[in-house]
Design a protein around this nucleic acid. Structure first.
Lengths: 161, 161
DNA sequence: TTTATCACGGACAAATTGTATCCTTAATTT
DNA sequence: AAATTAAGGATACAATTTGTCCGTGATAAA
């Protein structure tokens, strides 16, 4: 059970957008070059973010992406689910109903107790991501990355936007 | 990010083994028939459980599987990791080092803050599964499944073991 | 108005992983 | 000796992930 790379890309792209001045648009070309990932494929992730309403998009020359709302109103879960979908990590197939010695095919049963625990674990995972806002991520970033590196990166992106 | 079916199968098989009297061996053929899943493929999951030391195996006629330790000493995480592996659900590719405006390829950096949150979520998920013991699962089972169904199932498996 | 740049989105292809079957070998009971 | 069982390798098929390519429409700048 491993998340796709698109999730990582999307998270990093969102932190870039979150650090930009208001109204600044960043194209997928710039985002792709900045992160060293294929532009066309990254574009799919950005489309997912747009479809989820997390980013605003602008077509045409000098077009690109910007956050559609403040970074403290966007959680990491929002981003992960936008790209990865919101299906649970455990897909109960109800194999208990295959039990050959009783006919449980049509009987109504409470939710499978094994699935229940898996769902509980799934929720714990989501809760952590739901509580972490994009603004928190930016704050963390400023703690661990040297200021000059942060500034140079911002200037680089701004210079291309 | 979705777990494979083998995890579900393994969890259900372990609950069957946990309900058996001491020293009883259950073959993969019986486990497969009971759960309505392909025997050969289920066998792979059982091999994984054996490799992880969660079940004892016995070859030859009347051979099969039994728990290798008490059900309260086996967690759901033990079972999930035995089948699914213990790789984290988020695989950080360190794309922050691809940043074209600074050379971060070889610089030592603290763990990526985005990865850190993903790992935290991963741990929350694992914690729930680690705390839930196989014995707890059995207890839950007795609450939600009618007693006659439980008894008939046990008798069916015992009759074939 | 023309041209270049951008997001969008469909079609396609390659690589990886998940699901499953088959068969041989070795161990063990009857 | 014969039958049964787990172990494990080889293989095939399906689904998903990863990635590319190209056409369309929007839009800004020349």
């Amino acid at each position: 059970m491993i998340l796709g790379n698109q999730v990582e890309w999307a998270l990093h792209c969102m932190t870039v957008l979150a650090r930009m001045p208001e109204e600044t648009l960043v194209s997928s070309k710039v985002l792709a070059e900045f992160h060293g990932v294929p532009k066309e494929y990254l574009s799919k992730a950005m489309q997912a973010l747009a479809a989820a309403g997390l980013v605003h998009t602008q077509l045409g020359p000098r077009g690109g992406y910007s956050l559609s709302r403040p970074a403290n109103k966007i959680s990491m879960l929002d981003i992960v689910e936008a790209v990865e979908g919101d299906k649970k990590t455990f897909n109960c197939q109800e194999i208990r109903r295959n039990n050959p010695c009783t006919n449980l095919k049509t009987v109504k049963l409470p939710v499978c107790n094994i699935a229940a625990v898996m769902y509980q674990a799934d929720n714990a995972w989501r809760d952590v991501l739901r509580k972490k806002k994009l603004s928190d991520v930016i704050a963390d970033l400023k703690e661990i990355v040297p200021r000059p590196v942060l500034d140079k990166s911002l200037d680089w992106v701004l210079g291309k936007s």
